[in-house]
Amino acid sequence: MRAERLISILMLLQTRRHVTAGELAERLEVSERTVYRDVEALSAAGIPIYTERGPGGGCKLTDGYRSNLTGLNENELRSLLVPGFSPALPEGKGEKARDAALLKVLAALPAVQRRSIEHARERLFFDPRPWFVGEAITPFLPLLREAVWHDRYVRLFYHKPSAEVVERLVEPLGLVSKAGIWYLVGRNKQQMRVYRLSRVRDVEVLEETFERPLDFDLERYWTEWSTNFQESIATYSVTVRVAPEFLPILPMIMGESVRQLIREAGPGDEKGHITLTLRFESKETTCSFILGFIYRQEVTPGSSTFVPGIEILDPPEMRQAVLECARKIVALYNVE
């Protein structure tokens, strides 16, 4: 543990040349006293490192010093080359492995390239999580990562959409993260299957290993499977009238592709309403979506009313379905 900390101090100073003891202590999650002891140990080992007190002080390396001690361990290499695929480590340790790997890579780069990368990292950040959607709970992801990595059988207890929990013996071939949701691609009884990790209720990793198919390509399989899956879902088209107050919100809920539909729809009618054709999985999901977008509108100062953000124009049976759902809601909450 201390050896890794000493290397981290050396790599960090090699990339930044000057870091305060407080920054090092916070980064390494130790006390400043421990940092100073580590600096003394590095100095005793012949590393030209020294400390300066007062304003502008801190830990420094002698100008021109450069170490080639930048080897990545297995955990760091995994976290760097395969984002999100850190090993089964306690919470937060995967991020530390990635940070340590990046630090070593930066330390190995020439100063000009290092400054260019730091310039970009200070100005660009990628957040893959969609708006208004909580992250799926996947407590068994670390176990499945290790099973995938070592080609070991797993026994899954899987919650099917029908609410039935089934047991499956699976050869885990790969893990895929799509829009923040994890899926396991595996083989069960020689049949390829895709399992959503948030539906996994329990996992048992077996000692027995399996022979991985030589011709299996995870990216190719996922691309083909996801395309077929998307096309297989029954889509239901509805024509709707959207209130102007709701137009900025619609793309954040249904995706950026809706923004193009809004642009093509033009300026709208005299009240700013526009007409769109939207697609849903079924009548049920359409009904739930429409009823979810009722907003409060001020009529006069001090008084307001609830009006629909989206109104279905066509097909007629969908208008009737929404009406039936609304009647059931009124009956449920009617206290008279």
Rank of each mutant, 00 (worst) to 15 (best):
S237T: 10
V238C: 06
F216N: 11
S237W: 06
T209V: 12
V242G: 00
V203C: 02
E219V: 04
F210A: 05
N228G: 07
W222P: 03
T209K: 14
L214C: 07
D215Y: 03
R241T: 05
S237P: 02
R201P: 00
V205P: 00
V242Y: 01
R201C: 03
E204S: 04
T227P: 01
T239N: 05
E231H: 14
V238A: 10
V205S: 01
E211A: 11
E208D: 12
R220D: 15
T223P: 01
A234W: 04
E208R: 06
V200N: 03
E207L: 05
Y236E: 10
E224A: 15
S226T: 10
D215G: 02
W222K: 07
T223D: 14
E231I: 15
S232F: 02
E211T: 15
E231Q: 15
Q230K: 11
F216H: 13
W225T: 00
D215T: 11
E211F: 07
T223M: 12
W225H: 10
Y236N: 12
T235H: 12
F216S: 10
T209D: 03
E208Q: 14
R220I: 03
R241H: 04
T235D: 02
D202I: 01
W222V: 05
N228A: 09
V200Q: 05
R199Q: 15
Q230R: 10
P213S: 14
V240G: 00
T227D: 06
V242D: 00
N228H: 08
T227E: 06
R212A: 09
L218R: 06
F229A: 11
W225N: 01
F229W: 06
L218E: 04
L214Y: 09
